[in-house]
């Protein structure tokens, strides 16, 4: 175990990049769960990883490839809204198949593929940090503005429509934001770590949040705390970050659940 690595300047950029994402991804997850669309996060992440790998093979920036693929996925989700979870499952299968075939058949894609699937965020550079910081600065105010509209469309759809309000543009904008954020996260911290941060903190927040506002805060707090602990553990014990993050977040969910069941 090497705890000195935790304060090594080499890991500051990857840590900060992931920390920003760990605060933002759970917020995206809160709204995806609200709409019963949390599975879309995994579809977006898989599509982003396949897009990033394809971009690498073509000599393009991986970040751009991942973002374009996730944007296409979010557009496809909007167009195939009636298909629901079926569309996400098809996207996941397509992206996973394409990604694994690229890794298997192209030497350039092999290392990047492992980084994406294992979640080796230590390869994250300043470009990622800058992109994530800009996205956070842009997405948070938009999410705050969309909050009421997304809740109204979910709980009072007829009231919303009778007011002459069209939920469509807001939902489409949210899908695009979710696609971009998840794509950035996938390229920065890996597929399953990104999905775990979208999925688990909201699961806990829905269970224990005392209000919607408190739930949003709780989800972001669990995301950042869980991420920080997972980062430290994976670095100290020289383990891949993605699996450590996923397991740690699931434990965060299970432990209070067991305690409350006993009570």
């Amino acid at each position: 175990m090497n705890l000195d690595l935790l304060v090594d300047p080499l890991f500051r950029v990857p840590f900060l990049t992931g920390l920003l994402l760990a605060g933002l991804l759970p917020l995206i997850g809160m709204y995806l769960r609200l709409r019963g669309e949390w599975l879309a996060a995994l579809a977006f992440a898989q599509m982003a990883s396949a897009g990033a790998l394809l971009a690498m093979v073509l000599g393009w920036p991986m970040l751009a490839g991942g973002a374009i693929a996730a944007l296409l996925a979010s557009l496809a989700k909007g167009l195939a809204a009636a298909a629901g979870a079926n569309a996400y499952a098809l996207m996941m299968l397509l992206a996973w198949g394409a990604g694994v075939l690229l890794v298997a058949n192209h030497p350039l894609a092999e290392q990047a593929g492992h980084a994406l699937f294992d979640g080796q965020l230590y390869f994250t550079g300043e470009g990622h940090l800058l992109a994530v910081a800009l996205i956070c600065a842009g997405v948070l105010p938009v999410l705050a503005r969309l909050n009421r509209s997304l809740l109204l469309a979910r709980f009072f759809p007829e009231f919303h429509q009778a007011r002459g309000l069209d939920a469509g543009p807001g939902l489409m904008l949210f899908d695009l934001l979710a696609g971009v954020v998840i794509a950035l996260a996938t390229v920065s911290i890996g597929v399953m770590a990104a999905f775990a941060l979208v999925f688990v903190p909201p699961l806990v927040a829905y269970r224990f949040g005392r209000s919607w506002r408190a739930g949003l805060g709780l989800a972001a707090a669990i995301g950042t705390a869980g991420y920080t602990a997972a980062f430290a553990i994976s670095l100290a014990f020289d383990q891949p970050f993605g699996p450590v993050c996923a397991v740690f977040l699931v434990v965060i969910f299970l432990v209070p659940g067991v305690k409350s069941d006993r009570l």
């Binding site: 979910r154 709980f155 007829e158 009231f159 919607w212 506002r213 408190a214």
Partner: peptide, 20 residues
């Protein structure tokens, strides 16, 4: 216009208060 519809979305499990 305000419309109170007969069927409502399932609110179970959502951390939303009456005030919200």
């Amino acid at each position: 216009i305000s419309h109170q519809a007969q069927g409502f979305a399932d609110l179970r499990g959502v951390p939303l208060t009456g005030r919200e």
